[in-house]
């Protein structure tokens, strides 16, 4: 049953040190505000899963929240590397980061298997690829009917999944649209789920086939306008491409990254204040 609550309280009660955490959103609706709150509350030793780690996990990894990352594409889209991810992998800073690599198809399939309460997912991939040689999480099985050799990956069943969506109603039913990624699968695969939303409304006014997560599949719903920034929320705001480009310089060395995290996350008490500090910084640059 969804509780309408603050993001601070939701993270306090639902995200624990050492948890297996999924924060999903494919370019669109990335739950940045929630990622910041996890950093602010200094969660440790998380096992993070996400198709595209993006800036949200780069920040969490650099801030020392994670010990392992399960992913399929780890770059800054259209810009280059995720420097904090690379520093953790290549130099163990601020702590070593174990990697488990997949392709988008099989990792999204692994969420489907998790939501389906199955132990693994099958797909037709990886014959001839070196990925299975370097991963215990990709193995081959024989189809019991045809004998075909197929790839198997363990299902993804997070302790907690966090997503951002456009709307919830007052009961906590959640509506999202546009590029959906694997958010629905990730929520249904998890034991607990937090959803941040742009707005809370009386009526969702959705079509019958719309992507809706009924309130009883979600643990907490938090109203956080702009909570997907610098990614975008279809119908609300555009992707802040300039921030993605600026992140390359901010994250390139440890000092500038730490200064950014301190000023924007650790020294702010909410996403509202983060937005204010970010705006002030931009105003200074322009002025």
């Amino acid at each position: 049953m969804a509780e309408l609550t603050s993001l601070r309280m939701a993270v306090e009660s639902l995200v624990r040190d050492g948890d297996f955490v999924a924060m999903e959103g494919f370019t669109h609706l990335i739950p940045f505000a929630a990622g910041h709150e996890v950093i602010r509350q200094r969660r440790k030793n998380l096992v993070l899963v996400r198709l595209t780690p993006d800036l949200v996990y780069d920040q969490m990894i650099g801030a020392g929240c994670a010990r392992k990352l399960i992913f399929s594409w780890g770059g800054n889209p259209g810009v280059g590397s995720l420097h904090r991810l690379r520093d953790a992998v290549e130099h163990g800073w601020p702590q070593p980061l174990e990697l488990e690599e997949h392709g988008h198809g099989d990792l999204s399939n692994a969420y489907v298997a998790g939501a389906s309460n199955l132990p693994f997912a099958v797909s037709r991939a990886y014959a001839g690829s070196d990925l299975p040689r370097h991963s215990d999480a990709i193995r081959f099985i024989e189809c019991p009917f045809t004998g075909e050799r197929l790839a198997a990956v363990p299902s993804v069943r997070p302790d907690v999944t966090v997503i951002h969506a456009q709307k919830a109603d007052r009961k906590g039913n959640v509506l999202l649209w546009g590029i959906l990624g694997v958010q629905k699968e990730a929520v249904l695969a998890a034991r607990r789920a937090i959803v941040t939303v742009e707005e809370v409304v009386d009526e969702l006014e959705a079509w019958p086939n719309a992507c809706i997560l009924p309130h009883w599949t979600v643990s907490a719903v938090c109203r956080v306008p702009g909570g997907a920034h610098p990614s975008y929320a279809h119908g609300y705001y555009e992707r802040d491409n300039l921030f993605y480009q600026a992140w390359d310089a901010i994250s390139r060395d440890r000092e500038s990254f730490l200064a950014w995290v301190k000023r924007h996350i650790l020294e702010t008490d909410s996403f509202e204040e983060f937005k204010r500090v970010l705006q002030e910084g931009l105003a200074k640059e322009v002025g």
Partner: peptide, 11 residues
């Protein structure tokens, strides 16, 4: 050099 990884390319 650590590259971004597979994306959807293996499939």
């Amino acid at each position: 050099v650590r590259l971004p990884g597979a994306g959807g390319a293996p499939e």
